[in-house]
Nucleic acid binder design. Structure first.
Lengths: 130, 130
DNA sequence: TATACTGCATTAGTGAACTAGTGCAGTACG
DNA sequence: CGTACTGCACTAGTTCACTAATGCAGTATA
């Protein structure tokens, strides 16, 4: 797991997305303990608070639950929640695009076309602004 | 034209998008003079610099051109540029969504489904966070 | 109970984005 | 030339998101 400090995406969000992906992919099993705040902070060379912020986000999404003094664990409904959350995010992104397209007067056909075009080009790492 | 100061979207961007929409819709004709910085600033009760920043964005997009001492005018290729620009923005938004969906492991069929779902619900003003 | 782990709350520093204040430079016109 | 408009450049203040430093509170184990 690598953190890109130069990215415009905040660190805590990168971490959250990484773990979210991991849970979604089944790397972390339900009720399994996640790396502790300090352990992960040490590994990634960031402040424990940054890690906590990432975990907070995941907790709000119902992906993990925390036990004070024990640790953080993967929620049972994590995969379901992860999918649901991802779907919401995706939907939101699409809604944004559609809103833009509509306000520009693009007809639905054109919007569909642009979408298909985007979906077609699979390999596109648009991340990383210096 | 109204400005929402409570929105998380910066004022200059709201203005830019409004004018962009206006040009795209044909409200402003090519070579027609746009409201001066101070005039529009007075009308919207903001600083002229904020207006200028909006115009800068539009100029970068090739929508308007400026003549020092004369004013700001709609570019001839404005409509074309506006469409192109909008299409880029839309494409970017879609790409974001697709990227999210992929990293969550959603299959393409599912992605298409979510998109269609978003496109279906036409009226959705998701703006305005306090 | 002492120790060593866990999450959590409070506060502070830093940097970037946004907006505003002010003055300079170019153009048209009487 | 002087006036009144135009865009533009420079500087400063404000706000907010992000990250970090530090200390408190809960839990297991010897």
């Amino acid at each position: 797991m690598s953190i890109n400090s130069n990215s415009h995406v905040p660190i805590f969000r990168q971490i959250a997305e990484h773990i979210r992906t991991g849970i979604s992919a089944g790397i972390y099993q339900p009720d399994e303990m996640l790396p502790s705040l300090r352990a992960l902070a040490l590994e990634l060379v960031v402040n424990p608070n940054t890690i906590q912020r990432a975990y907070e986000e995941l907790e709000r999404e119902g992906l993990v639950y925390s036990r004070r003094g024990l640790g953080l664990f993967v929620a049972r409904q994590a995969v379901r929640s992860a999918r649901s959350q991802s779907q919401d995010d995706v939907e939101k992104a699409f809604a944004d695009g559609i809103r833009l397209a509509r306000s520009a007067g693009l007809p639905d056909d054109e919007i569909r076309h642009v979408f298909s075009k985007s979906l077609a080009r699979k390999m596109d790492k648009t991340g990383g602004k210096s």
